[in-house]
């Protein structure tokens, strides 16, 4: 078996916006064929990293290699290996679906009947044939995303970059987008690198790179991440959850998060807390539950979610 170079290999990567560091000495690699997730709060450097990998930004320091090709010295060779779906639309609204695909295909050096038949096949498999000659401005948000995905994969790249690809989609459109991505990933040996805020998308990944304030603070599989928490999550429903959270934080020195009418904290032996909480707060609590941590819990615990990106400097 020959040694395959990693799909992505990043060393000592830094990026500086005017006076603000966005990435500080990041190093990691992503295997071929993996679904690799980049997660972290806003301002953690996810999008900057993705833009460097897509050769849209030059790193201030360090190197990024895609399939062993240096992104800085050979950007065009790198671009050929990847399809990119950006967070916002990158289609031309005034052009039809097919015209957009033609445009994209030609940019990647495809032409003539080969391009036409590739577009047909791609529209067919993406379930877009019926809308092929409609202008993009008439499509729903979910449909547009699927066009973006088909356009990004038109030149059959081995790597797909997705930058928060399902932002603003309703759950069923999101589901359809992921069905399609999963199918494409299976059909060919596609490596997928994605940034996301959505925990169910993070759960789909083989590996998760957790970013915080421009640094890579964890690189593990979702299961490992959850296991490493080594604790349970205790959550309570209560009418006045925020007061409850404050009281618990003050008395036990734990970090107790509150959202809506739910307060939650992490504890090594969650079960022991159930009785204690009921004893302490009694009527004030509607329900108590103990569970294993979700990816969201890991996320909250490890990124100090409350800290604002301004604190970075």
């Amino acid at each position: 078996m020959t040694q395959k170079p990693p799909a992505i290999e990043v060393e000592e990567l830094s990026f500086q916006y005017d006076d603000r560091p966005a990435l500080r000495g990041v190093a990691f690699s992503a295997e071929q064929g993996a679904m690799f997730g980049i997660v972290g709060p806003n301002g953690s450097g996810k999008s900057t990293l993705l833009r460097i990998l897509a050769t849209l930004l030059r790193p201030s320091n360090g190197t990024a290699r895609v399939f062993g090709i240096d992104a800085q010295s050979r950007p065009r060779a790198v671009r050929k290996t990847m399809g990119v779906v950006f967070q916002g639309s990158s289609l031309d609204d005034k052009l039809t679906v097919r015209e957009n695909m033609q445009f994209r295909g030609r940019l990647y050096g495809m032409r003539g009947s080969k391009l036409a038949s590739k577009i047909d096949a791609s529209l067919e498999s993406g379930g877009l044939m019926e809308r092929a000659d409609d202008r993009v401005e008439t499509l729903s948000g979910g449909m547009r995303r699927r066009v973006e995905l088909s356009a990004a994969l038109l030149h059959e790249p081995p790597l797909l970059l997705l930058d928060e690809p399902t932002t603003g989609l309703d759950p069923s459109a999101r589901h359809a987008f992921w069905e399609e991505t999963a199918r494409q990933k299976k059909d060919r040996e596609l490596t997928v690198i994605l940034t996301t805020h959505l925990m169910d998308e993070a759960e789909r990944c083989d590996s998760l790179a957790l970013f915080h304030l421009g640094e890579l603070i964890a690189l593990e599989s979702p299961d490992e991440m959850k296991r490493k928490m080594g604790c349970d999550v205790v959550s309570m429903r209560a009418a006045n959850a925020s007061a409850l959270a404050e009281e618990l934080s003050a008395r036990f020195g734990m970090r107790c998060f509150c959202s809506g009418n739910e307060a939650r904290f992490n504890a090594p032996n969650g079960r022991e807390w159930v009785g204690r909480l009921l004893e302490m707060f009694g009527e004030r609590i509607d329900s108590v539950a103990v569970s294993k941590p979700s990816i969201e819990d890991v996320f909250l615990a490890r990124t100090d979610y409350a800290a604002q990106p301004e604190d970075a400097a």
Binding site: L56, A77, V84, F86, S89, R104, L107, A151
Partner: peptide, 14 residues
């Protein structure tokens, strides 16, 4: 502004 340009910049054209 509409995001169209980024797909062009990400394509292998000079």
């Amino acid at each position: 502004r509409e995001g169209f340009l980024q797909s062009v910049l990400a394509a292998p054209v000079s």
